[in-house]
Amino acid sequence: MKNILASVIGVMFFVIAACPCNADPSNDTLSFSQPPTTFKLVLSAKENPEKAANPLDEDYQEDENLDEYANNEIKEERVDIADPLESVNRVTHQFNDKLYFWAVKPVAQGYKEVVPESARISVKNFFSNLGFPARFLSCLLQADLSGAATEAGRFTINTVWGIGGLLDPSSGKELNLQEQNTDLGQTLGVWGIGQGFYIVWPVFGPSTPRDTVSIAGNYFLDPVAYLNPWSARMGVNVLDKVNAASLRIGDYEALKDAAVDPYVAFRDAYVQYRYKRVKARQAKWSSSPGPAETSVPANPESSKRGQ
């Protein structure tokens, strides 16, 4: 009797061990809330992949989904952003859309006709160089000393040898000082402050309460904001925006045309982008002083992707 019991348990153990679902530790995320029928389907489809007659007949399986969505930890954080202001946001989104098609784009296109690309890249470099204070401060606040040093070096070199920032010799192969893509909103994210809900600002576009800090902070940290009179300030800001738009004509249209619901598409793209930027900065923060990849945060995959 004891023998039979032991062998039955033994066989059961091997059957369970051999079940393809458990063969891979990454499959542990298989959700048990799925109805048992789905579970059976999963098994049969996995055991004979050749015999699965038509992939169209197969059900969607949660366990094969390796996106950030599958990872429970992140699921909470990012499946979606709360959008309590959706009705207002949609109106602002429409306004910004019209602003782009009726004003920004035609002006940028005219500007593009007149100004050669190399000059427009120089203008972009110039404004990007002026954005140094915000990036430098953000690096410092994130305890990213190497990033702050890189920014300080870039600013000095590009201002002095890059003719006031028109050229960008620092990012060349020899010096290889790349611009630190960070801002105050990301800093708050690194500190653990959540994104909150979605806001579309007129002119500024997609944002969150957290990222609005960047807009406000830039007001104080951007040298252009100290220009007098206000008309000069406006003029310079418009040049910045038009110049930037002239280098990106077509990007907005492409995203919009590809979307089934452009409002939702832009919201999602914004949230995904910001999320991964913050993740990348967080990885840097938790692993300083060293390359981000040496640290193993809760979800190694997302930090890898955030690079």
């Binding site: 996106d67 939702v264 919201r267």
Partner: peptide
């Protein structure tokens, strides 16, 4: 994929 997933 995620972008379309959110929309759908």
């Amino acid at each position: 994929v995620q972008n379309y997933r959110t929309q759908f």
